[in-house]
Design a binder for these strands. Structure first.
Length: 386
DNA sequence: TACACGTGGGA
DNA sequence: TTCCCAAGTGT
């Protein structure tokens, strides 16, 4: 189906040619005067553009900037990325979240070395074939780095377009994206496609925002149907989200006589895949139903149950401090961890079902810990007042 | 198609 | 507190 047919099917009335050209001029003129000075806008190196786009996925600009600068300084070429160790990469990514992004980037870098002689491909099909690059990122890199007229439809672009054209599609649905892409194919400036895409995103990030949107301040308000019709509060259409699920873990911070701490490796799939945490025992795995609530934390048989489970799961005989050290909570996008932290010492080491390792605090700086682990570490180093 | 996948910030 | 948001992709 052609772009115009897709638009017609969804009752999106495309502008006449002269209006499209006027829109391009207005938008790009505003961008030229108001664009944000960002590190990845000072380069046309496709590798750097790519790094920035991966980091910016679901992540705010201010958060990304220091990570981006450190990353390209440490790994200045695709070859460096392809050869970097996973530990190096995770350390560079520590605290950014969505850690599969950087693992996928290494896979893609190896793809580029093997299939494209280490040169970032220009053909959109080849770009899309790279691990971790989907329709948005492929469009962003090819338009920004190579000046190709490809759409880069993210949340900003869908919000801006929904308001300009009073689009009724739910922007939360995966199927909606291709309709917005069809629209951008018709609107995009063939001479400055990368700037056009970035202008739309800047507009969405600074003026046409989710909250505090005042359309009269927009440089393209005359093109905005929802402004003209005073319907902007309706757009974009977005269904409400689901509630997060709660999980409670008894978290054991175990030390040995060398001062090392015991960590377990998360499974290779799922939340924080392959990352290190303190020992986490699911409250649902405890034999007594009453431990699933937050009460009874001083009961001595709880400590005994935890010590027995630690022996089963991690192979270590431990002696726990009966006093609850404290609680840590961490909210993910779709779930919440409540960690009940106990300290203890190892009596006898052994091998259990789960992969574990001893790490000395002097080595903490060279290992990537996810934020929940950092929060527990912080709790352990706080001075107890009584 | 819908859901899993991190984290921090703002209302 | 609670909710939503922020330059999405893989499965």
């Amino acid at each position: 189906m052609s772009h115009k047919n897709i638009l017609a099917k969804h009752n999106i009335q495309l502008w006449p040619k002269d209006k499209i050209e006027a829109f391009r001029k207005r938008l790009l003129n505003w961008y030229d005067q108001n664009k944000r000075d960002l590190p990845w806008r000072r380069t046309s190196n496709p590798y750097y553009i790519w790094v920035s786009e991966i980091m910016l996925q679901q992540t705010q600009v201010d958060t990304v900037i220091p990570y981006y600068n450190r990353f390209i300084k440490t790994l200045p070429t695709i070859h460096d990325l392809a050869q970097a160790s996973e530990e190096t990469l995770l350390k560079l990514w520590e605290g950014l979240g969505y850690y599969s992004r950087v693992r996928n980037m290494k896979t893609a870098a190896i793809q580029i070395v093997e299939k494209h002689e280490g040169v970032f491909p220009r053909d959109k099909k080849d770009v899309l074939a790279l691990k971790g690059i989907g329709p948005y990122t492929a469009g962003a890199v090819t338009s920004i780095a190579f000046n190709q007229a490809e759409p880069a439809v993210d949340g900003n672009v869908m919000r801006v377009m929904s308001r300009l054209f009073e689009i009724e599609l739910d922007i939360g649905k995966a199927s909606s994206r291709k309709v917005f892409e069809a629209l951008i194919y018709e609107l995009i400036d063939p001479d400055r496609p990368g700037d056009f895409n970035q202008a739309l995103m800047d507009l969405g990030a600074t003026i046409c925002t989710p909250n505090n949107y005042f359309p009269e301040t927009s440089p393209v308000k005359e093109f905005n149907a929802s402004y003209i019709n005073e319907t902007w509060e309706r757009y974009p259409i977005k269904k409400s989200t689901k509630k997060v699920k709660n999980f409670t873990y008894y978290t054991l911070a175990i030390k040995n006589e060398r001062g090392e701490h015991l960590f377990e490796k998360r499974p290779s799939k799922g939340v924080l895949a392959g990352m290190w945490t303190y020992l986490m025992i699911d409250a649902d795995d405890l034999p007594n139903e009453k431990w699933k609530s937050f009460e009874n934390q001083s009961d001595e048989s709880l400590i005994e149950d935890l010590e027995n489970l630690a022996l089963e799961m991690y192979g270590v005989k431990i002696k726990l401090n009966k006093q609850l050290k404290g609680q840590v909570s961490h909210i993910f996008s779709h779930l919440k961890w409540n960690l009940l932290v106990y300290e203890g010492d190892v009596v006898t080491e052994g091998v259990g079902i789960k992969e574990t390792t001893w790490i000395h605090p002097e080595s903490f700086d060279s290992i990537a810990f996810p934020v929940p682990t950092q929060k527990v570490r912080k709790l352990l180093t706080e001075i107890t007042l009584f």
